[in-house]
């Protein structure tokens, strides 16, 4: 191991080593290794079905890897249940929005705050009047630009607002690291631009693993990019390196699209 590699391992907030996962005949993660440093935005790109969502689900513990090791903040979390990982500061947003649709935006985020405020075997006090829950929740909504929509039922928010709410919920527990699964999917150009600005602001305070199809956003935000194809890392490095990587151009970006970027 050379100096830089050692340095990298020691400093990494998240370290994934030789992660492997199969669904029957499909290889979703193929000896996948990557790391994310504190304060880094690491983008993972790859065609549909490359195993990006599967990677995130293994990081959060919703799926168990067949093989491999996940280290977060120096702890081996490979076998930890989801709620323990989340307590350690690993937060996820879902590719398909998964909200509490019958509750208000503020209630959604308050629940996420509550998840990090110790056990919830508190049976008497009105949770909607606890400033300990409501204030951080309001702050998270403001950070994602939903401050005005706090009392709207989640079901009545637009698609773009759902994506924002997703991220506010991920922020609620003051996570050390955000795992974002295609936060820009289905957004219009204007909404996307706003999301890019928001992520840029978040980046200074949280390490981020960003799965995203919007290449413009990825190249604008990422410190490092990893390219997955069939669950395997085919390239990893600085945006410039990836832009010029021959195999990436062939396998994923496609010559045409690569020329546009």
């Amino acid at each position: 191991m050379d100096y830089w590699q050692r340095c990298n391992v020691a400093d990494a907030l998240l370290q994934v080593e030789a992660l492997s996962k199969r669904f029957g005949g499909i290889v979703a993660s193929d000896a996948l290794s990557l790391s994310v440093a504190p304060g880094e935005l690491h983008a993972v790109i790859g065609p549909n079905g490359a195993g990006k969502t599967t990677l995130i689900s293994q990081l959060t513990g919703q799926l168990a890897p067949d093989f491999g090791k996940i280290t977060f903040a120096g702890l081996d979390i490979t076998a930890l249940p989801t709620h323990r990982r989340s307590a350690l500061g690993l937060a996820r947003s879902f590719q398909i929005t998964s909200l509490f649709l019958d509750m208000s935006a503020l209630d959604n985020v308050s629940l996420a705050v509550q998840a990090h405020a110790g056990h919830s075997f508190r049976f008497w006090r009105d949770a909607r009047n606890e400033s300990e829950l409501r204030e951080p929740a309001r702050a998270a909504l403001v950070r994602v630009g939903l401050g005005e929509r706090a009392s709207a039922p989640a079901a009545e928010l637009s698609h773009g607002e759902h994506r924002q709410l997703e991220i506010a919920m991920a922020l609620a527990g003051r996570p050390r690291m955000l795992l974002l699964d295609e936060p820009m999917a289905g957004l219009g150009p204007e909404e996307s631009a706003r999301m890019v600005e928001m992520l840029r602001a978040l980046k200074s305070e949280h390490a981020i693993l960003l799965v995203e199809h919007d290449m413009e956003a990825v190249f604008a935000l990422a410190d490092r990019i990893t390219v997955l194809v069939y669950g395997r890392v085919i390239a990893s490095g600085a945006p410039e390196t990836i832009r010029n990587h021959a195999e990436v151009r062939r396998a994923y970006l496609g010559e045409q699209e690569a020329a546009d970027v």
């Binding site: 989801t82 709620h83 996820r92 998964s98 509490f100 509750m103 629940l111 996420a112 509550q114 075997f121």
Partner: peptide, 27 residues
């Protein structure tokens, strides 16, 4: 009292979206 307490919010959240409750850290 129960349904408006923290405990109650967990119960309602779990009816609304149990998977998400686990994801944000509620057993």
């Amino acid at each position: 009292r129960l349904v408006n307490s923290r405990f109650g919010m967990v119960i309602r959240g779990s009816r609304s979206n149990d998977r998400r409750m686990h994801a944000i850290g509620f057993p």
